[in-house]
Design a protein around this nucleic acid. Structure first.
Lengths: 147, 147
DNA sequence: TCTTAAGTAATAATAACTCTTAAATAAGTT
DNA sequence: AACTTATTTAAGAGTTATTATTACTTAAGA
């Protein structure tokens, strides 16, 4: 799902041009594991492509979301993060630093189909968050209290 | 949980003043069933309290979130919605109009404790969204295609 | 009632994101 | 390989929900 060829194919199949900008952005976000923000993606892309504009990043991320390769996760700090994993899974999110890691629980599949059956309609998407304080932030909080 | 006395008690117990503004805002959002936005809450409160400022609404909503009576749900349109239901439940959300209704599935409790056991830590919160197009929006979309 | 720390209203400031537009280009056609 | 044109990009202006600031007001304990 992350090869340049595969990405180009995916854009064209949906009727969009496979431009170098789009390909670089797609490669970076699709292989990411930490659900980066648009700004983080922009900074990463700029290294390889210094003239690229933030607007292009936003536009491409929306496009990738539209064609189903990405999920946009909105948060109350108004900064979205982008999740390349479209299948039902749990986002384990640190309430302090915002870091996210995916958790693919075996138990989710079963639960999921059960809930869909109960609901009586087929969802077009889902989002499952679990909030905590990650080990690093927990350690920092402890240190600050001690000092 | 929604009576004036109960709300006043809750504010004071956490060391905050029980002002009329806070009480009115809390009453409206805690009894709401549709996960209103800050703007919607502001409009509702203004009817009873015309001089109230939007900043007070935001501040009070954050306070209610902090003391655990409310959950703030961020979205990718950067408009937060406020959920008075703190226990694990599913938000059924329309991707078109943004309307939210809660779904208290029996199956969730079991799933939830199972996942917590698997994870090996105790979460400080959760958010479970299911996305769809609500009946009304689905009807409208159909009409627009026909026209 | 008095005192004062905490809260409010008004408004300026912020920042993520979106819009606009002129210049550039992907990709089909010749 | 050059031609054509609808699509895309870069740059910067614009938008808007939310936050910060500050002078005035008030809840609530003494």
């Amino acid at each position: 799902m992350e090869s340049k060829e595969r990405i180009m194919e995916e854009f064209r199949r949906k009727g969009f041009r496979a431009t170098p900008q789009r390909i670089v952005i797609a490669q970076i976000v699709l292989k990411s594991k930490d659900h980066p923000t648009a700004e983080q993606i922009y900074q990463a892309v700029k290294k390889k492509y210094p003239t690229l504009s933030p607007a292009t990043v936003y536009q491409t991320l929306h496009l990738l979301t539209e064609i189903g390769l990405l999920q946009e996760l909105g948060f109350s700090d108004r900064v979205s993060r982008y999740d390349p994993n479209a299948s039902p899974h749990i986002n384990i999110i640190c309430r302090n630093c915002g870091k996210i890691q995916d958790y693919q629980a075996e138990s989710i599949k079963g639960l999921w189909s059960q809930i869909i059956m109960e609901l009586g309609f087929k969802p077009i998407g889902q989002r499952l968050d679990i909030y905590r304080h990650c080990d690093q932030c927990q350690a920092n909080m402890h240190n600050n209290q001690v000092l």
